[in-house]
Amino acid sequence: MKISALTYVPCSSLLLLLGASRVAYSNAALPPDSTFVRQAHRRAVFQFDQRFSILNGKVVGINGVKGGIEWRGRWRAGVGVYRLSGGVPTRAAQPEGTPPGTHDEVRFRYLAAYGEYVFIGNQRWELSTPLQLGAGSYYTKYYFPDGGVRRTSKEVIYMLEPSVAAHYRIFRWVGVGAGGGYRQALAAGEAPEDDMSGIIFFGRVKLFLGDFVKVVRGHERLFTQQGLKPTN
């Protein structure tokens, strides 16, 4: 019986074809890589960014809001504004002639530009490395024993804040997060820098404006887990 050349396949080639088919099938059966959340288009993000610091033995809050643009699910950039909610006790020497018992505090506010890189995450959560560069003003407030108050003139201050942050999406359009880092203040004089520099820790509520608009325009359910479950 003669075997046609068109139907004859060497055993070695047949084994290679079967192996390649098996690998291709296995790869096709694997879920898509969700190490990073990739988005083809840019989208807007907005955050209520409440920060805290322990400065000169006192826990103080820095209230802030910031907004920006996210692209490819990995890069974010934008601007924010921050204001110290209470004064920070100073360690600087008081001016000559200040009455005994005078209490003084430093207060500051600043505008910041930020950049953020997401290095791991999925549809539900992520871990990122934000960096903020800010500029603003500070002043010292003196409270005298007789009830009088005096405030110094404003001085320029610069802020550098590297940190690590994480967030968890409760729904597709809103999430909560937390993180920590360090604030380095650059100001005129060593004492103001020491009074405003220190470890920071923060909590935030994050609104994904782009996803919120899509949910509203698409008449989708507002409180749903759609789009947050891992792809099988």
Rank of each mutant, 00 (worst) to 15 (best):
E105T: 07
Q123K: 15
P89L: 08
E105S: 14
E105I: 01
A113N: 05
E96M: 07
E105W: 06
T129H: 14
G86R: 12
P100W: 00
P99G: 09
A113C: 11
D104T: 13
H103M: 12
L111D: 12
G87P: 06
P100T: 01
T98L: 05
F108Q: 10
S85W: 00
P99T: 01
Q94D: 09
Q123T: 11
R109L: 06
P130E: 08
V118N: 13
S85L: 05
P130M: 10
F119Y: 12
E116I: 02
V88I: 14
E96D: 14
E96R: 05
E96G: 12
S85P: 02
A92K: 11
D104R: 07
L111Q: 10
T102N: 04
H103F: 12
G115W: 04
T90A: 02
A93M: 02
Y117N: 05
E105Q: 15
P99Q: 05
H103W: 09
Y110N: 09
E116S: 05
L131D: 03
R91I: 05
W125M: 15
I120G: 08
A112F: 00
G86A: 12
W125T: 08
F108K: 06
T129P: 05
G121P: 04
E96C: 04
E96Y: 03
T102R: 04
L111H: 10
Y117I: 11
G97A: 01
Y114E: 08
I120D: 15
Y117C: 07
P95T: 03
Q94P: 03
L131C: 02
N122Y: 11
A92M: 01
A113F: 14
R107A: 10
T98E: 05
T129F: 15
A93G: 07
R109F: 11
V106I: 12
E96S: 13
G87S: 10
R107P: 00
R107V: 07
T129D: 13
P99Y: 04
N122E: 10
E126P: 00
P130Y: 08
S85Q: 13
V88N: 09
N122K: 11
P99R: 07
G87C: 10
T98R: 02
W125V: 08
Y117G: 08
V118T: 13
R107W: 06
R124V: 09
G101H: 00
P95S: 07
G86N: 13
G97S: 00
A92L: 03
L111F: 14
Y114N: 08
W125N: 14
G101I: 00
D104M: 03
L131I: 00
T90H: 04
E126F: 04
A113W: 11
R124Y: 12
P95L: 07
T98A: 08
W125G: 11
A93S: 11
T102L: 04
G87I: 06
V106N: 13
S85H: 11
T90W: 03
P99L: 08
P99W: 03
A93N: 10
D104I: 04
V88Q: 06
S128P: 02
R91W: 01
G86T: 06
